[in-house]
Structures are given as structure tokens and as C-alpha cells.
Design a protein around this nucleic acid. Structure first.
Lengths: 140, 140
DNA sequence: TTTTAACATGATTAGTTTAGTCAAGATAAA
DNA sequence: TTTATCTTGACTAAACTAATCATGTTAAAA
């Protein structure tokens, strides 16, 4: 699993869309780009990839933009990372066939990572972000 | 954590050296290269890296070669992987400073991986390999 | 119906990393 | 002194990353 700039951009963009989700409104690429400091044209590429994978949907023309294709509760971090980075653990072609003593270790690692990222939804991350940014749902 | 060809080569080479360890003898690069199908010159580079990190030691001239610098029981897979691939989880410079909601997730993943690879020694892997290859320490 | 504010898509590119190779040298045993 | 080994630094091709560029298509609004 590679945590590249692209991966981060995708997660941050989805987070913006997840925050917006309850309003039902679409957001412009430009707005996401500005808010999260993501190169505009690169973000377009990334959103397209997420769209093809069925995580976001878009509309064109004036009043166009992007929104999540489904509830943040139904979008896991695992799904997102796999779309952007492919398989969690990637071994070079050469080592994929012949099983070595390491194969089972890589598998164990893959399962450990999966059990973490498949149990975190965008909704969880929105909650976390709100807490970090200082929104409180109740006063002490 | 990247599982590159280099990573695999290093692990396979260490495994060869670990198997040899009880005899106290050094092995030639060429032998490791032939047995594990590792490009000779590339293997030299890798062994040098492992040597600098204190995992293997070498001697030159006739009867020269490589051997483990310490017992296979004291060489973990974690140590090896960190020498070859650096930190387990690597985020691009850009995202390292500002902590996002993802930071704690990456950290959790890193800890999960560490707890696996830091608890597997080369000795464990030698045992595993012997079992796979069909050596049995007792008959049924 | 024309304008315009959006998204769509394929090609291109600079920089970095990966996976090696090449060449000339240093050491130690026979 | 020969020879089998390791040592070291420079070099290179291919792939990947992180973008940019150019040219479209769409749909709402004027």
C-alpha cells in the first residue's frame, strides 16, 4: 500500500464531499481544490477515477459539480485506498508465483491492514474532523 | 512499506545466510546469487547495505564470503525491512506536518505491521522453510 | 438559441525511484 | 605472486509519480 500524494488528495476530496453530503448539493472541483490545496487539474483526474469506481457522481454545465454517490456511512477508507493504490500489499510479478516463507507473512500483514481500513467509514472521518476542528455537539 | 524486488532479494539472501549460520562458514555472493536467482551485482549492493547496518559481515580473498553478524534468533524481519525500505509507512513530505484525520489511521496501520514483523526472526523463517521443503525433525 | 460555467478525456512532461549494470580497485589465502 | 574473493562509486534504462496542456462535451441561464 502506497500512501502517495494522490491517495491523500483523494481522501481529502472525499472528506469534503462527505461533509457536504447532508445538504444534497454538488461542489465544484475548484472549491475542493481551493479548500484542500489540491492542484486543480490533478484533482479532476482523481475525481474521475473515483467516479468510475462508483464512489462519486458528477453533473455538468452551470450548477454542475460533484457529490458522493452514496452515504458516507457506506464508503470505507479501505474501498477508497484500493481504488487509488490497487492491492494493499503488492509484490513484484517475479515473486507472486513461487510461494516463499514470506508469502504468509505478507498475507498476515495484508489482513491486519484490511481489518483496520475496512472498518473506518468516511462518516467516521467526518466526525473525527469535526472534533479536531473544534465543533462540539454539546456544551459542558 | 514497499515490498520491492530488492526487499525480497535481501530477505532471501538473509535466509540463506541464516541456514548456513550453524556451520560458522561464510558463503560466496555467487552461491547466494545462484541459489536464489538474484542478479549478482545487485546482490552485492544489497549485501553491502545489510553489512553497513550490521546484519552481515564479510571477508575478502580466497575463502572469503558473507555470514550473519549475529544469530538468526536476533535478526527480526522488521529490522531487515526497515533497513531496505525505510519507515514502514511513508507519507509524502507535504502531508507530514499538518496532522489530518488520516494521520492516526496511518499510525495505527504502522503499529499493526510492526507488531507482526518485529516478532518474526530469521530463525523462525528458517524453521518454516525447512518444514515447507520437507525436512522433518522427527518421524511419525 | 447563444452564451457560459461547469465537467471529460487523452496526450504530454519533468522529476524520482527501481532495478539493475559497469569498471576499476583492495584483500587475503594459496 | 597469483587468483578468488569482496568494495566502491558511477552510470543507465524503464517505470512510476505528480502533475500540466489542449481540446472537447454538457446543460443551465440569458
Amino acid at each position: 500500500m502506497k500512501l502517495t500524494a494522490k491517495t491523500h488528495y483523494a481522501c481529502l476530496a472525499l472528506l469534503e464531499l462527505a461533509i457536504q453530503y447532508p445538504t444534497g448539493k454538488a461542489i465544484h472541483v475548484e472549491e475542493i481544490s481551493a479548500r484542500q490545496n489540491i492542484p486543480l487539474k490533478y484533482l479532476v483526474q482523481i475525481l474521475n477515477q473515483l467516479k468510475k469506481a462508483g464512489l462519486v457522481e458528477s453533473s455538468r454545465g452551470q450548477k454542475g459539480g460533484y457529490k458522493l454517490a452514496k452515504s458516507p456511512h457506506n464508503i470505507t477508507l479501505g474501498k477508497t485506498l484500493r481504488i487509488l493504490s490497487g492491492p494493499i500489499i503488492e509484490t513484484p510479478e517475479k515473486f507472486r508465483k513461487n510461494k516463499t516463507v514470506f508469502s504468509s507473512v505478507w498475507k498476515e500483514i495484508e489482513e491486519a491492514i484490511s481489518s483496520i481500513i475496512d472498518n473506518i467509514t468516511m462518516a467516521d472521518l467526518v466526525e473525527k474532523k469535526k472534533a479536531q476542528d473544534g465543533y462540539y455537539s454539546f456544551q459542558i
